[in-house]
Design a protein around this nucleic acid. Sequence first.
RNA 1: GCGCCCGUAGCUCAGUGGAUAGAGCGCCUGCCUCCGGAGCAGGAAGUCGCAGGUUCGAAUCCUGCCGGGCGUACCA
Length: 581
Amino acid sequence: MNLRRTLETRLSRALSDAGADGPALVAPAGKPEFGDYQANGCMAAAKRAGGNPRQLAERVVAAADVADLAEPLEVAGPGFINITLRRDFLQQHLGEALSDERLAVPPAEAPQTVVVDYSGPNLAKEMHVGHLRSTIIGDALVRVSEFLGHNVIRQNHVGDWGTQFGMLTAYMDARDDDAGDGGHRIADMEAFYQAAKRRFDTDEAFADAARRSVVKLQGGDEHALSVWRDVVDQSLRHAQEVYDRLGVTLQREHVRGESAYNDDLPRVVADLDAAGLLSESQGAQCVFLDGFTNADGEPLPVIVRKSDGGYLYATTDLGALRYRARHLHADRILYVTDSRQALHFQQVFAVARAAGFVPEHVLLEHVPFGMMLGANRQPFRTRDGGTVKLTDLLDEAVRRARALVDEKNPNLDAPARDAVAEAVGIGAVKYADLCQNRTSDYVFAWDKLLSLEGNTAPYLQYAYARVRSIFRKGGGPEQIAADDEHRAAEIVLSEQAERTLAVTLVRLPETLETVARESMPNLLCAYLYGLAGAFMAFYETCPVLKADAAVRASRLGLCDLTARTLATGLDLLGIETLERM
RNA sequence: GCGCCCGUAGCUCAGUGGAUAGAGCGCCUGCCUCCGGAGCAGGAAGUCGCAGGUUCGAAUCCUGCCGGGCGUACCA
């Protein structure tokens, strides 16, 4: 059950029964003494209706049908309604969650087909830290929406077309000639790209060949295309290695690169023309929209065909948008890209609407995130001005985690410590990115990124491992699993710490729903951190294994719920959990 | 010039128009004969950039300044 929404619905109805209209504005209580939730809507409603807010709140309390969930409601201050959940409701609800695979998270009432465009690396180069945010944030959003029962379609709109590919295919050809073995192996994408670039800059004959290569590619030359396919294939293989290591759910089948829309681009332009939107300006085919002006205050075009006849990313995105609406039948399309592309998507969405490329009801959302900055607040670079390769970043993260595991838990054998280091190091990198509001710029700092204390993935993983160790101590996992004493247990909440933990546990559904609606994974992080904190406090004050049978069973139930909620939440963030660490 | 985003504790950041603005790191004080101390409990630390306005109520909404970032016609 989504408790917050249930309360909102019922209190809004009570508000209307009490003669006022408007939302009840139910929110988690600001302070413990205000209860568990508070309704803030009476003040505004009374204002609109011209009445006394406290009196209205009293009438709402009288009319409200929440006796099954909450203690008698209390009016406080100028017209707040404080809501304290009933203990027996919490106990019964948790009992249901205990025996439910989904932890009592209801599936979406109106499942949507959600297309999520994320990651989208430029295949000409190796994946670097600049690709991290889109990949990680997008994957978390995908997982959450899928868990809520939406039909999620991943789209990896990779950069597999464009002038760099002329250079790369020409270099591949030249290399084959040099090596003479025709072996198209690219061991290191970045080195390959750098070498091609160096040759392009220094070797005039090669530069010419590269330019000819672009023309051949665009002209559909079979040899050029075959070499291109090889470069793309190897790049995708590299990307897949990174995805697999990162624990990102993207697979080869989700790749639908820019090149997939090549054939459609002339039609996109023709259809814009047919819709009466196209005009020529300075030799380019453009769409001019109201409200967009350039640096000189003149109308700003969306260029869909260059004066040399080439197409641009706006054209490709329009093709992709149309494909997603018409063929994938999307109800909602998310674009997880950096915030610098905000104007681009405003324009593309506006053109698509104007041209009728997407049905009215389809939601088009740019999910922007801030830039990766260095310590100096400048766009992030390595000391020598290059980009940090993703594999190097992950290696460093795992190395640091390994050093910590060696120090903290020398009893584990070496393979186990390796596995822990991998999960902890990579989890730390992902969590550091996910836990802050995505719209703020991201200051890249090794120490912060790989921090293993405080509000970090390792803290949550540790909380999980700690809960699990209780079950091991309590007779071994096989015994606990066999008698299921905790899953059949009646939850009984007596201590304050137990109650706080319980209230946190029942907030999982409303949290996930907000995360999906607002595309804000940081809210899930905040929730899990709060849950881990509530558990740690419970753990300090409430003995589990030494308690009397009934209390012990109830507390084991709380432990089990905590463990599964942490594991589920971390999994939705794409972060692994460990039985020991 | 115009548009978008951002100025919150020493640092890094949370904060759906609600009650006395919160975390982490760092700093200070306690807590390991007790289920894992990667922890827990507590403390110090703030003109929420500035000034107006709207509102019963503003860090949050509006306007204007100041400071920063990004974008702004044929790269993506």
